[in-house]
Write a protein that binds this DNA or RNA. Structure first.
Lengths: 227, 227
DNA sequence: GGATGTGAACGACTTCACAGCG
DNA sequence: CGCTGTGAAGTCGTTCACATCC
């Protein structure tokens, strides 16, 4: 097709350094390093090398060093990394060196499962509000939290300082609920609904699409078993 | 440590074609195209172009064509792709042009949520057996399926022709249950437990790590809001 | 004209290899 | 010596651009 010019970076005159940024893949690995480090710390390890850190995760030592190099000069040649410092540095880089207030919409089985999942609280993600469109669920208490109707978002979320939203609602409702959350000031969404959300710039989205994951698996199995 | 080196290509004399393989990212997009195509088909569209297919998904037309080119020469220049044929070709490529029997281990909230999720059945994934280590749950019926104890895997799974396993068990149990499933003949696992599974070659794994996802989100929000 | 398929350019991520430091 | 940090090389995936065909 002809000139789908697209605006892009035309406004940028030049000169600005590329400034290496933490890549998406690196961020995912940092999460894994963090978890591994916590295990190693509990086992009493004070120092870790890039080799030992990556080993159990299937990551090469060179990759580990590259990832960690983004955080600054934390390693000591010939020795390794000081585990506690490394944990602190990773937490800061990931933005989890503080508490995040989270709202959860859709108190079905999936929502309840996430609510009880310890991993979240351990990392500073605190579910502060629940929402559900089902009148039978509204005003009930789940894990000590009252379920609010969706209309209450604009009032409740800012009051509680909620910045993140988790969507465990049916696919049909996802876009509407997402819009309501964004209007109420939420700046990031983790959605489990299939399909793509259209959101204003400045709002981040991470999508966990279970169908896509299962299809990936089917593909891999077919490949390896393709005899 | 070494070991993983495997053959590498240094030993390759030459001559053998690289044979382009469907990349992981491409496979993920094919899933999305498939879902989009089904919507378009319901709306009565018989032909689609790479532009219209990718538009709603945020994928460029060139990317769509590259992805679809792996499936063979399906497009008609000046016209586009015939939607029904494309659907069939994608299903075949992903290995979902047939039914897959699935076993689910861990009948907690998350397990129940997946069990009721329609998207799986629509794509030919049939949950054929349930397992749980909790004696209170064993022998109960959930969604018409009896819950078996883990010891029954070796007997039940081969009998039902189960090839895929879904793990919604606590982190501590994941490796043991995974091993049991593999022993019982399962060739692919979708796990929701945090942590890395060590499995024999030939068994595929897709891991959905919710903590990693949330941390990705926190990182993105911190980035965009880092003003 | 309209849209595909595809080499070539480009960019992003990973691995290699080694200098340098404790 | 062991292990880090990092340029260089290599690999993989995406975007561009255009010849080609209906």
């Amino acid at each position: 097709m002809g000139g789908r010019a697209s605006v892009a970076k035309s406004a940028m005159p030049k000169g600005v350094e590329p400034e290496p940024r933490l890549s998406r893949a690196s961020v995912g690995r940092l999460s894994l390093y963090l978890r591994r480090l916590e295990v190693l710390l509990r086992e009493g390890a004070a120092k870790v090398s890039s080799g030992t850190l990556g080993e159990a995760l299937g990551v090469t030592d060179a990759q580990v060093r590259k990832d960690l190099a983004y955080l600054g000069h934390l390693g000591h040649p010939g020795v390794g990394y000081a585990a506690p410092e490394l944990v602190a540095a990773i937490r800061r880089a990931l933005g989890i060196d503080r508490e995040w207030r989270v709202a959860l919409a859709g108190v079905g089985n999936l929502g309840r499962a996430l609510l009880r999942y310890r991993g979240f609280a351990e990392r500073g993600f605190r579910v502060a509000a629940l929402f559900d469109a089902d009148p039978a669920k509204v005003r009930q208490r789940v894990d000590g939290l009252e379920v609010h109707p969706p209309e209450a978002m604009a009032q409740v979320l800012p009051a509680l300082g909620v910045e993140l939203g988790v969507l465990t609602v049916p696919a049909e409702a996802a876009q509407v609920v997402a819009d309501a959350m964004v209007t109420a000031g939420v700046r990031g969404l983790l959605t489990f609904a299939p399909g793509v959300l259209r959101l204003p710039a400045g709002v981040s989205v991470v999508s966990v699409d279970l169908t896509v994951q299962l299809e990936q698996l089917a593909f891999l199995v077919q490949l390896s078993g393709g005899d």
